[in-house]
């Protein structure tokens, strides 16, 4: 397929929609798992963010045909979920959040079996299983029963079975769950590689906002089953023009600094242990002027300056702002 950007050596033209939903709703009686969800997911890595119970897993299960929606429609890779569900399941891979590995089988045997269940022949299944297990980083462990695996190894095995049949799209539900920081970084790097190097579209969910900022091109934020925001990651992370200042000490020191800066004509407010300084008024707008002011004020007060950096947006802000901008 044509359509290659600098990053994606992929199967899909950059403008083709991978997942499209229209008014997707799933109610269990009085529990509203998803309400009127309308999103468009393109190729690359898309993050699906939300608290536990926000509807992330429900959305994935509906797209896979494991659950039926109460109303609304959706299509995955051009196939409608109501009529062409089987076609969809040929083309996608799924890495569930929960434990799903039988403990008495080795990763190697299991991934081969899953490859065959996806339609690969015996020999290609073995080859690809070996390949994919190497890609996810399971070496000799792959021959041991999965019951004895650590969480990290289990997550890798789950990922391997999702990739073994060369899908066009993978759903990764909380892939970093239960991993220690080093393993988490590994996994995130792997997810990024899947999206960029392997050329497979990825929908990855997490309730950890920071991770998804690093890894995804596009972020969809869900809250209580509703869409809160859906835009490119860069939109979220743009520099806001503010400055963040942090000094040694407690809130007392922070407040002293804040008042002193205010007296110099800078609008500022506390944020956590730091002081957020709004973009300066015209008098101080030359490059570096504000920084000099801050430096001088801190020195006058005898405080130790720890941090002086430009502020950029965070995903958290979306939750704090609330409302639905799409």
């Amino acid at each position: 397929m044509a359509g290659v950007t600098g990053e994606l050596t992929g199967l899909l033209p950059t403008n083709q929609s991978v997942i499209t939903t229209a008014g997707l709703t799933k109610h269990y009686g009085s529990v509203h798992a998803l309400t009127d969800l309308t999103v468009d997911v393109g190729p690359g890595v898309t993050g699906l963010v939300g608290a536990n119970g926000a509807g992330k897993s429900t959305l994935i299960k509906i797209l896979l045909g494991l659950l039926e929606p109460t109303s609304g429609s959706a299509s995955v890779l051009g196939h409608d979920i109501e009529h062409a569900s089987q076609e969809i399941r040929r083309l996608v891979g799924y890495m569930p959040e929960h434990d799903c590995l039988p403990p008495d089988v080795s990763a190697s045997d299991f991934v081969v079996h899953m490859a065959r269940m996806s339609g690969l022949g015996a020999a290609p299944a073995r080859e690809r299983a070996a390949d994919v297990l190497r890609h996810v980083g399971l070496d000799e462990e792959r021959y041991r029963p999965m019951g004895g695996y650590s969480t990290g190894m289990k997550q890798r095995a789950k990922l391997a079975q999702a990739l073994v049949h060369d899908p066009h799209l993978v759903f990764l539900d909380e892939p970093t769950n239960g991993l220690d920081p080093a393993a988490r970084t590994d996994m995130l790097r792997l997810v990024q590689r899947i999206g960029s190097d392997f050329g497979i579209a990825v929908l990855v969910t997490s309730h950890l906002l920071g991770e998804l900022e690093q890894v995804s091109n596009h972020v969809i934020v869900l809250d209580g089953g509703r869409l809160l925001r859906s835009s490119a990651t860069t939109d979220f992370l743009r520099r806001t023009g503010n400055l963040l200042v942090e000094v040694v000490g407690t809130e007392t020191e922070r407040d002293r600094l804040g008042e002193a800066l205010a007296q110099r004509g800078l609008t500022c407010r506390p944020r956590g242990s730091m002081v957020a300084v709004d973009p300066p008024p015209p008098e101080l707008a030359e490059a570096g002027a504000v920084h000099d002011v801050i430096r001088d004020v801190t020195a006058e007060l005898g405080l130790g300056l720890m941090r002086l950096e430009p502020d950029h947006g965070h995903l958290e802000d979306v939750f704090l702002e609330g409302g639905a901008h799409v």
Binding site: P103, D104, P145, M146, G147, G148
Partner: peptide, 8 residues
């Protein structure tokens, strides 16, 4: 002497 393995 209990060894907990995942075997069947």
């Amino acid at each position: 002497s209990f060894s907990l393995r995942g075997e069947d």
